[in-house]
Design a protein around this nucleic acid. Structure first.
Lengths: 288, 288
DNA sequence: TGATGTGAATAGTTTCACAGCC
DNA sequence: GGCTGTGAAACTATTCACATCA
């Protein structure tokens, strides 16, 4: 996972920085005149734990699947199973956004979908720009306008002049030099960096200059961004290495069966022979 | 980010399941005869917090970059900055794998690299199979044998007969029906699922049957796997939605400026001219 | 003197278990 | 009877702060 924040504070494995939000009293009831303009719809909505936010997105997908099957009601148990969590956690997570269930019955699928969407800010459209139209960039650009709701890809950028002007996934590629202009013009809020490591910080700076507020970074580099910009990182190498760690741990555990009584509850299946060990220099060739 | 586990327990945001490891005494000193075969190299190595494991991979990259610049020593402060964490956390993380620093001086880059690689199990090669050679699959197959050390891609699979046999990134694509056979033959330990949602569970089952121990899943579905298989999920939609949440939160916070006395302890940092006030609608366009 | 390594304090997250309501 | 919502307990992770040592 791997956090990625401006500088100091962090949350879970992969998380955006700071925690903000003054603890004390909630910011709800501030009966003042100006509230007229604001429909009083989304008030509190703070203080939702980072970890819970991530899971809300997962619940949302599970709920959408249910809705498609014309299922109108779910229990926390059912939804939890579909989302791969336990029901206590699910109920707790949902409690952060309000009480929309019915005791003894469950949740109304449509209602929950609406509430989660509201909480995640999905009622507003977020234009996406993808920078770096290589293999990964293509994949992202063709990602069906981004799954589900409001993430239309509205700009693509690359360095390569042969690519500029060519439409990918219906949108013509612009040159990287025009990031600032195009992004502010098309009101891009989310930038996706799919460039090689070298260009990433430069691209990031331009996206920020173009008014982008969030960045999803596939380049294996820690980006420097101003405080008001949110960064999330997806790092394939890190994911693989975490998996590697778990394999190693498991094998080591298995090896510790040298000790144990017969059945120590360990991994019975799997088996297979383990190769020996390698060992060498190790070079770091980044690519993308 | 979203956990993904067989059924119940989970860790941080994105984590593999169970915690295993008996707490009590470490498994170190078990002076028995069979220890001859085992070089007594990697013994304990348990009990490293999930979150720390993820960061070790990040430190490793930062260290590799330093090594390439022929830098031989780093302080926790420097390395922490490079990795985007604070130094206390870094020192704590490193302390889980042992004491390899020198007080008053710092860490030797090469030594740390070696120790982290050992801890992450990178001294063993992990063959990778990629299933689903679409846009994303191509990107993954061409990922340069996977960044850095030991993750050679050694098998590719797709459903499409037009693709079977065609080499991608130097490796010919095999048919999905041959997953079990090919994977066990080539001793694949890590499977990457880059298929559409529909096929994902089926593919997963075959990978498992083929002896794969870890799965990196790009399909937006919660996979069912036996206990001994580790799954990690990368979900673009979830990432985007988390970002969306943060935008929404920030805008909502800005809107709450309706209230505030002048300085309510909000983000004072940033310094610089920073955008002063925001109008009702509130747009966040930073210029340069 | 300067930086590591780590116990103790704090913060965040998950799980338990049960009151409350349908 | 069944299921939600939620305090409180348990657990995990981060930060502090300082003893320790080269």
């Amino acid at each position: 996972m791997t956090a990625q924040g401006a500088d100091v504070p962090e949350g879970d494995g992969q998380t955006t920085a700071r925690t903000a939000a003054s603890p004390g009293a909630s910011n709800g009831a501030d009966a003042n005149g100006t509230s007229i303009a604001v429909p009083a719809a989304r008030e509190r909505a703070r203080s939702i734990p980072e970890a819970a936010v991530a899971r809300l997105a997962v619940y949302l997908r599970a709920l959408s699947a249910l809705a498609e099957q014309d299922i109108t009601t779910v229990s926390s148990e059912e939804l939890a199973t579909a989302a791969g969590v336990n029901s206590a956690k699910l109920r707790k997570d949902l409690s952060y956004i309000g009480s929309y269930g019915t005791r003894g019955v469950g949740y109304e699928v449509e209602v929950l979908i609406g509430q989660i969407e509201r909480t995640l800010g999905l009622t507003r459209k977020h234009s996406v720009a993808v920078v770096g139209i290589g293999n990964l960039g293509h994949a992202l650009a063709n990602y069906g306008g981004f799954p589900g709701r409001g993430f239309p890809v509205s700009a693509l950028f690359d360095l390569d002049d042969d690519l500029v002007g060519v439409p990918v996934g219906g949108i013509p590629v612009s040159h990287i030099d025009d990031i600032v202009e195009v992004c502010s013009e098309r009101e891009v809020t989310i930038g996706v960096i799919a460039t090689p490591t070298q260009g990433a910080q430069e691209v990031c700076d331009r996206l920020v200059a173009g008014g982008v507020m969030c960045i999803l970074n596939f380049a294996p580099i820690v980006l420097q961004v101003p405080e008001h910009v949110e960064v999330r990182k997806v790092d394939l190498a890190v994911e693989m290495q975490i998996l590697s760690f778990h394999v190693a741990r498991r094998q080591q555990e298995a090896a510790n069966a040298v000790d144990g009584a017969a059945s120590d509850g360990g991994p019975p299946g799997g088996g297979a022979g383990l190769p020996g060990e390698i060992d060498s220099a190790n070079r770091m060739v980044e690519r993308l």
